[in-house]
Design a protein around this nucleic acid. Structure first.
Length: 110
DNA sequence: ACTTTGACGACTG
DNA sequence: GCAGTCGCCAAAG
């Protein structure tokens, strides 16, 4: 899907150990209100050959906190494992502190 | 061609 | 803080 290329490129830009939200990725991809598109685009990546760190994309849930929005418990667990392997702290609820790991284009080193 | 659904987000009550 | 509603774009039935 060529339409999703921009999303993938944005996700690829996310540095290791950081996470971004669907809305953020959508905005950077040129779809300010295409948060759903992001999710849809990423869902298409599942079980595909890609170099897109989809695990770094989380749901925003309003603001301040992000979390794994995958509806598939299996995929959610896998994502959590991948994130922790990169150094991202994910609590039992699958939430991540955007204050610490939220992707900032300008590496906000605490 | 129309309707429903989907890894969402923001606003309103 | 939580539940309901609308908006958004694309794909699948």
């Amino acid at each position: 899907m060529v339409k999703f290329e921009p999303f993938y490129q944005v996700v690829r830009r996310v540095p290791r150990g950081r996470v971004a939200t669907y809305g953020q990725v959508a905005a950077l991809a040129g779809r300010p209100r295409g948060a759903r598109l992001c999710g849809y685009a990423l869902s298409a990546l599942r079980g595909t050959v890609h170099d897109v760190p989809w695990q770094r994309v989380l749901g925003a849930r309003g603001a301040g906190r992000a979390g794994i929005s995958l509806r598939d418990p299996i995929g959610a667990a896998a994502q959590r494992a991948l994130l922790e392997r990169e150094g991202v702290v994910v609590d039992a609820l699958g939430r991540v502190e955007l204050e610490r790991f939220g992707w900032r284009r300008v590496a906000a080193k605490r």
